[in-house]
Measured scan of single mutants.
Amino acid sequence: MFYPNSPQTSPQLTQIPYGQQYAMMQRQIQQPYHPFATTEPQARLYPYHYQGPIQQEQGGFITQQSTAASPQYVQMRVTPVDQSIMSGYPNQTANGSSSSSFNYNIHPQQQQQQQQQQQQLRHHAMPVGSVPLQDDRYRKQLIVNYLAPDVTSTDLHELFSRFGELDGARIIYDKQTNMSKGYGFVYFCHAEDAKEAVERMSGYEFHGKWLKVGYSTNPLNIVPSNSSPYVHAGSRGAAG
Rank of each mutant, 00 (worst) to 15 (best):
G168E: 02
P229C: 10
I106D: 03
I29S: 10
Y18R: 15
T67Y: 08
G52W: 04
H157Y: 15
G208E: 03
M86N: 12
N103W: 05
L159V: 12
G208F: 08
P4K: 13
K140Q: 08
Q26S: 13
K195I: 11
G184S: 00
Q31T: 08
K140N: 02
Q117A: 10
G19Q: 11
K140L: 02
Q28S: 06
Q118F: 11
H157E: 04
Q92P: 08
F102W: 14
E199G: 15
F188C: 01
S10F: 04
M76D: 13
R44H: 11
S228P: 07
T217C: 04
L166Q: 00
S87Q: 07
N5Y: 04
S235T: 08
N91D: 09
A197F: 01
L166N: 01
Q111V: 12
S66E: 08
T217G: 01
F160K: 00
V131N: 11
D82V: 10
R44I: 01
V223G: 03
A169R: 00
Q112D: 05
A37S: 08
Y89K: 14
M76E: 12
S216G: 00
G129Y: 11
G59E: 07
G214P: 00
V78L: 08
Q72N: 14
E192H: 11
I54E: 13
P132Y: 15
N145L: 01
T9L: 08
Q56W: 03
G208W: 02
L220C: 06
F2R: 15
F163C: 03
Y22E: 11
P132C: 09
S161M: 13
S228V: 10
S6E: 07
S84P: 08
L211N: 00
T39L: 07
Y215V: 02
Q119E: 06
S84H: 05
Y18C: 13
Y187D: 01
Y89M: 09
P224Y: 08
Y22F: 10
Y183G: 00
Q116K: 08
H157N: 08
Q115T: 09
T67A: 09
V186G: 01
P127E: 07
R139V: 14
H232W: 15
R170T: 02
H123S: 08
G182C: 15
S101G: 10
F163P: 01
S227W: 15
E165M: 14
N91H: 07
C189V: 02
L147C: 15
Q26L: 02
P7T: 10
S6A: 09
G19Y: 05
N95S: 06
V213Q: 00
G237H: 12
H107A: 05
P80V: 03
Q15L: 02
D150S: 13
G182I: 00
V231A: 10
V81R: 14
S228Y: 13
T154L: 02
P224N: 03
R170D: 01
H49V: 04
G96P: 08
Q75K: 15
P127H: 14
S235V: 11
T9S: 11
Q75E: 12
F61G: 13
Q30M: 02
E57P: 08
F163L: 06
N5L: 04
G19T: 09
K212R: 07
Q112R: 12
N145F: 01
N95Y: 08
P229H: 10
L13Y: 10
G52A: 12
G237K: 07
Q75A: 08
D167A: 03
A194C: 03
M24A: 10
F185Q: 00
F36D: 14
P53S: 11
T152P: 00
N5M: 06
G129T: 09
L211F: 05
T79N: 12
V198Q: 09
V231N: 10
H207W: 15
M24F: 04
R77A: 06
A68L: 06
D136P: 10
A233W: 15
Y46R: 15
T38G: 12
Q56P: 11
H34C: 05
E40K: 15
A43W: 02
D193S: 08
L156C: 00
P80E: 04
H207N: 13
F206A: 01
R27M: 01
Y173K: 09
Q118L: 10
F36S: 15
V213H: 00
Q72L: 03
S100G: 10
D136T: 04
Q92E: 04
H107G: 09
P80D: 08
Y18K: 15
Q114P: 07
A94R: 11
S101F: 11
H190F: 04
Y204L: 14
V131M: 11
S84I: 05
G96Q: 07
Y146T: 01
P224C: 06
Q21H: 06
H123V: 04
S161E: 15
H123A: 07
G52R: 14
A197L: 00
A148R: 15
Q26R: 14
P80S: 12
Q51M: 07
Y18L: 07
G88R: 12
P17W: 03
Y73L: 08
Q51C: 05
R236N: 05
P7C: 07
V151W: 01
T154W: 03
Y187L: 00
S87P: 06
S10D: 04
P32I: 06
Y89W: 07
Q83G: 05
P127C: 09
Q109H: 08
H123F: 12
V128C: 12
G203D: 03
Y50L: 11
T79C: 06
Q110S: 10
L159Y: 00
D174V: 03
N145H: 00
N218S: 02
P224H: 12
I85W: 14
S66W: 02
Q56I: 03
